[in-house]
Design a binder for these strands. Structure first.
Lengths: 198, 198, 198, 198
DNA sequence: AATGAATGAGTATTCATTCAT
DNA sequence: TATGAATGAATACTCATTCAT
């Protein structure tokens, strides 16, 4: 991100190693020395790029979003009808949730303690923007309800899907069938709405 | 809960102190010695009630759910129509999210590292059950769509509201007006549904 | 000291070990782990008695003064004439300077950085008081000049002797003969005065 | 010094910066990187002029003595009577003690750990020589006692004055009046001698 | 000579946990 | 049950020093 400027190469290497270690060990057991071992650099070098252990968190978030956006480049069809697109979005969100679920929680706790929450918003922004464009187009085509502005819908939609994915990850885990059912239920709830209009 | 058996009194005192400290200090900086200071007991006593520091987590979750259920006793009208009930639920969820948001993240990370995730499900169960009953009733009255079983709807609904509350907490924080708007948008999205049926 | 209350036993053990290590290794190379090894306690125990490594310094100073006062009990004759007493004082000062010279410098640097210099004064006080009494008595007997109050003379006298002892330590070191000569020169200078009165 | 050869210009710049930093931070917290920042050079350049961090110490000592000798050029009257000269010497010694007190202690500890104490003597030598000449002249004029050789008197005298200045610095600090009194007491003690001759 | 990025050894301090009382 | 002094393993971070440019 950084307005399109790619992260410095060594900083990137360190961050990728950090992602690995945090995922494997959790936030409590992750040590700087394991991060640097994974990155193939010396202990001190870490501190040339990050002032403290926890300050890798924003860099991790950047990379996660970057990867997510790359998923959209690959898996998402900008020309498809909205229902198809919704299914694609759900697949992508469930995908990264399965892979990175713990990491998101860690990120959140790690950034939260530093109260750099504005950063969080800035990092998510391009993601929201992408979905927002999709919604806008669908509204134009009369496929999505128009009571709310596209950005608001986008943000809440991502939240909804992520929450369902979290639940699925938490409760169903390795059960592929159950995950599939959850996705379908989600689509039902999102499309038909909750409350019956008389 | 414990099937209705109330937590031992000293254990409860310790847990309440732990909630305080975790909220004030975050997961990284919370120490057993601060927890016991807050509870007015000796260092060693902690270990008579919990085998390790992280094992307070489930007890914290229990108390949080307990408090949530008490909120429902106070703020929730079992006789009201569903839209009114939905608004009440939203108020309650936004309420505890504002108060305990950080704590939920901590809980999650703290329990996750112990992989006691089944416990998590069990603890949430009575909460889901409560909402499930509400949905069932509303379905009976034709106020809620009937494509999905009440439990599934309940679980996802709670997730949706919590996700919106999280976003509100993250991005809007102290802005009461914005929080109010978020609640309204949420209701719009939940009631009208996302996709337009032609 | 502490108004006569002896230092807590374990604190004393730690301090004595610290004296040893600081003397052997100097301020830079002294490690807490070597101090505790010498004291036969665990690493953490050190911090039950001292908040930080450098905070042993005042305790070291206390013990050094304590030892000095014990020297006076042994080597000093309160009934002797002043010239004899002066020689005894010089012997004692040269004695502890030879033994603890480095340590005093370290102490000074160590306490200085904490700017606990008032403590320094308080710790030295009983020592000054002792010498002050000796001077007072000698003045009464007409053996010492009476232009200045005894306390002032005492303080400066100790300073003078310590400075000569320092120089002797620095320049003469192991040369016993030279040290002896230095002591005699010192007595000459102290007794006859510097400037000739016409 | 160096037999009259002035220190290389960059070496001098580094040393002056080191003096600054050591004074501000103390020996423990002084880092090479702060020294080089102050000197406006790169980290590695330091090691072109000094083999290690502590090896700046002798260079610092040289500069301090150099500054002291310059003070004598300015403030000292070679034609005056000895009492006047003594007062001038006292003023100069109290002057540099006030300014550089901490630094002398640091120097001492820093050089001591390297056991370069002979260097110390060599560096002080021209200073002692200067005072020695003054004493010799005063002895010639019958203003100073002649029992001891001028060099011995010079060395001890400097030590005495420095010790009084140290005490004054330690205990009186910012109290200008008290410092003045200390100087006068010192003169009294130096001129009239300690022991009364019957 | 000068640079400054990279190194990695070195250590103070913290804190969960134990156990004798 | 309750205590709290003692333990000692564990680790983030610093910084003197090196060396390729």
């Amino acid at each position: 991100m950084n307005g399109g400027i790619r992260m410095d190469d060594k900083k990137r290497t360190i961050t990728l190693s950090a992602i690995n270690v945090f995922q494997k060990k959790g936030i409590e057991k992750t040590t700087v020395s394991e991060i640097v071992r994974g990155a193939g650099i010396a202990q001190g070098t870490f501190y040339l790029y990050f002032p403290s252990q926890l300050s890798v968190m924003p860099a991790i978030a950047e990379i996660l979003i970057e990867k997510t956006l790359q998923q959209f480049d690959k898996q998402f069809d900008r020309k498809a009808d909205f229902l198809t697109q919704l299914k694609q979005i759900i697949d992508i969100v469930f995908g990264y949730t399965e892979k990175y679920h713990d990491l998101y929680a860690i990120l959140f706790v790690g950034m939260g303690s530093n109260k750099q929450l504005n950063q969080w918003e800035a990092i998510y922004e391009p993601y929201y923007e992408l979905i927002s464009d999709v919604i806008k187009e669908a509204q134009k085509n009369g496929e999505v309800q128009q009571t709310l502005p596209p950005k608001k819908i986008a943000v809440m939609l991502i939240g909804f899907i992520e929450s369902a994915a979290d639940q699925s990850y938490l409760f169903d885990r390795a059960d592929t069938k159950a995950v599939q059912v959850k996705k379908e239920d989600l689509i039902v709830l999102l499309t038909s709405g909750l409350v019956l209009t008389p």
